[in-house]
């Protein structure tokens, strides 16, 4: 982009009817899936973290209980936070790969094809041979 204006947003707005895409059944399914995963899982993680902080602040006796050797409940719960963070991360990635990415790229590819068609048409109708960029990158 030679020109650093906010041109990317401008170029494809008139061509794509985002309203229609947003209301399409397929997009709504994608949106439902993403929110259906993200909101409850994040809420659960934050509650679990909050519970841990509250236990560490207000339940000293319980947290100080020795489990094996000198390792106590507090340390195991702390490590459990680390483990759940890793586990949720892995879970989300596999969920996104299986359930979100396929629909998202399906919608994206369709619309990008639409944009390419539309700009081909406008380019030929304007009878301009060389320029009239289909992507902002080409304006360089």
């Amino acid at each position: 982009m030679g020109n650093d204006a906010l041109s990317a947003e401008e170029t494809n707005r008139p061509i794509v009817d985002y309203r229609a895409v947003q209301q399409s059944e397929r997009f709504q399914r994608l949106r439902r899936r993403q929110r259906g995963f993200v909101f409850p899982v994040l809420a659960a993680c934050l509650v679990w973290y909050l519970a841990y902080v509250l236990l560490a602040s207000y339940a000293h006796d319980f947290m100080s209980t020795r489990v094996f050797g000198s390792v106590n409940v507090a340390m195991l719960l702390g490590l459990a936070q680390v483990v759940t963070t890793f586990a949720v991360t892995t879970w989300y990635v596999s969920f996104a790969n299986r359930r979100l990415d396929p629909i998202a790229s399906e919608i994206r590819e369709e619309i990008e094809a639409e944009i390419a068609d539309a700009s081909d048409v406008s380019a030929s109708s304007a009878a301009s041979t060389s320029s009239s960029a289909s992507t902002p990158e080409a304006t360089r």
């Binding site: 707005r13 985002y18 947003q22 997009f27 949106r31 790229s105 994206r108 619309i111």
Partner: peptide
């Protein structure tokens, strides 16, 4: 536009 782009990457 923002919602469609944010979820699909268009």
């Amino acid at each position: 536009e923002m919602e469609v782009r944010s979820l699909t990457g268009i």
